[in-house]
Each structure stands twice: as structure tokens, then as C-alpha cells.
Amino acid sequence: MLDNIEVLQVLEIVIAVFMVVLAFLAINSKSLIKAVMFLSALSMLSVIGFVVMQAPDVAVTEAVIGSGLVTSLFVFTLLATKKVGVK
């Protein structure tokens, strides 16, 4: 049991660091499509965060809606504005 909690703590720290880095990259990247991908990855990591914090139902919702639906909405908008890969 103790091992389990220690593993969780390490996992938490890793997720936390990665999330902050990804958020920073998403805000500051020059390319819009890359920013969207970083946001999607951030959303995926937050899903793991929700699971770690014992909220599996929220994790499922976030995975489907936050990561899947929102990313596709962003991509479609970028396609419609013909701005993919361009600054």
C-alpha cells in the first residue's frame, strides 16, 4: 500500500511538471497547429491527473470531450481559416 502511494506521488510530480511545460509551450509556440496539439496533450495529461485524484468519471468525460471534441473543433476551425502551419 505504501509503495502504491509513493508511486502515485512520483506520478503526480511528473504529470504536474509536464502539464506546466505543455501549457507554456501551447501559449508561446509560433505555429497555431502545434499550439493546438500541445493543448490536446495537456488535456490528455489532465485526464491522468483526474484518475490519480480518484475521479474516473471526470477523466472519461475530459478524455472524450476535452481532448477529443475540442481538438477536432480547433483543427476544423484552423482548416477553415487556411492557417495550418503558417504563423
Binding site: 493543448l39 488535456s43 489532465s46 480547433f74 484552423l78
Partner: peptide, 17 residues
């Protein structure tokens, strides 16, 4: 505009966590 919406999303993810 897209970056602003991305920032909004990051804010929301932070809030949810």
C-alpha cells in the same frame, strides 16, 4: 484569436484540476 481561446482552455483545465 485562436491563441486566446487556447489560453481560455488552459485556464479551464487548471480550474477543473
Amino acid at each position: 484569436v485562436i491563441k486566446i481561446i487556447i489560453s481560455l482552455n488552459i485556464l479551464e483545465i487548471g480550474l477543473n484540476l
